[in-house]
């Protein structure tokens, strides 16, 4: 029979530390706090050995009451032996010949609360557990909102950048994009060739068939140039009917010549707009980075333009390398 004093002690501890256990000299459980009792529903914990209920994981080798008593005031790591094998933190204090062991969920509190369907009234009002759960939920909700905002802003940024580097009519890169590509190539001293291409007879199409037809010719021309170049090349709409192709990698003159000839041949195949054939051709000026000691984008573009001028003057549908005239 528990004495009045023992009953008072149990009431006191149930209020202040509802997840405590009282152990006798043999390590048998004599009293269970109300919240701790909820963690093993349907199990009579009274009379059970604390060592059968818990695996004391740290410090190791605590298998007897004598060993356990030496840990008074120290932090214990325990785990239920039967599922759910929730991990708990503990601290103990001797009380006469008995031991009071108080337990808490520690950082795994969320899982603990969920597994055992505990409520705020299962914790002492001074216990910070419920505040911690509150904070966790509040922070998660705020982080969630931030994450979604970041994702939206990131999407908007990518879309804006895409727009800023793209020629809206043809979907090719614009001059801004070209400046970036050329700066990167010259900074990394990569070998590349620059083809400056100008459509021949395009003005006549605009004049006779209208600007809408002209725009569609430009779109088809753009597609042809993309088809005839590789993934690593860059096709730029440089101005009205002028294009710049930046071909990365080896810059063998014969290869470049055949690429340019192929381009001219493909562009000379009549393009059908509303069933009407539109005949265009192209003049091309070519420069190669390997022909410069210190390749400079502005100089190269200007030289390519000069070579293009030679092609035009020579009677259209021609290609010229800079410095070859």
């Amino acid at each position: 029979m528990p004495t009045t004093c023992e009953i008072h002690l149990a009431q006191l501890l149930d209020t202040l530390v509802p997840m405590h256990l009282q152990l006798d000299t043999d390590g048998l459980i004599t009293h269970v706090g109300p919240t701790l009792a909820k963690l093993r529903p349907g199990v009579a914990l009274g009379g059970m050995s604390v060592f059968d209920l818990f695996d004391i994981q740290r410090p190791s080798n605590i298998g007897t009451m004598a060993a356990l008593r030496t840990q008074a005031g120290a932090k214990l790591h325990l785990r239920f032996r039967s599922p759910p094998c929730t991990a708990l933190k503990g601290v103990l204090s001797p009380f006469g010949d008995r031991v009071i062991l108080n337990l808490s969920f520690g950082i795994s509190v969320q899982d603990g609360i969920r597994d055992y369907a505990l409520t705020a009234s299962d914790f002492a009002p001074t216990d910070m557990t419920v505040e911690m759960l509150y904070l966790f939920e509040a922070k998660s909700a705020a982080m969630d909102a931030s994450r979604r905002l970041n994702a939206r802003l990131q999407g908007a940024k990518i879309a804006a950048e895409e727009q800023a580097f793209t020629d809206t009519l043809t979907g090719l890169k614009n001059r801004r994009a070209m400046d970036h590509v050329l700066a990167r190539l010259t900074e990394s001293r990569a070998a590349f060739a620059l083809l400056h291409l100008d459509l021949d007879f395009f003005k006549q199409i605009n004049d006779t068939m209208g600007h809408a037809a002209g725009d569609r010719v430009l779109q088809k021309v753009a597609r042809i140039m993309v088809e005839l170049t590789r993934q690593q090349d860059t096709v730029v709409r440089y101005g009205g009917d002028e294009f710049v192709l930046i071909l990365a990698g080896p810059t063998d003159k014969q290869v470049l010549q055949s690429v340019a000839e192929r381009l001219i041949a493909r562009l000379e195949q009549p393009i059908l707009i509303d069933g009407q054939p539109c005949a265009v051709s192209a003049s091309i000026g070519i420069v190669r980075s390997v022909d410069y000691d210190r390749p400079d984008p502005i100089q190269m573009l200007s030289d390519a333009d000069a070579a293009l001028y030679v092609s035009k003057r020579g009677g259209r549908a021609q290609l010229h390398f800079h410095g070859a005239e």
């Binding site: 969920r114 369907a117 505990l118 409520t119 998660s140 909700a141 969630d144 909102a145």
Partner: peptide
């Protein structure tokens, strides 16, 4: 009901 440990915090839009 209010379940302390519910994973119901899918703050859809706030």
């Amino acid at each position: 009901s209010f379940d302390l440990g519910a994973r119901g915090i899918n703050a859809d839009d706030l």
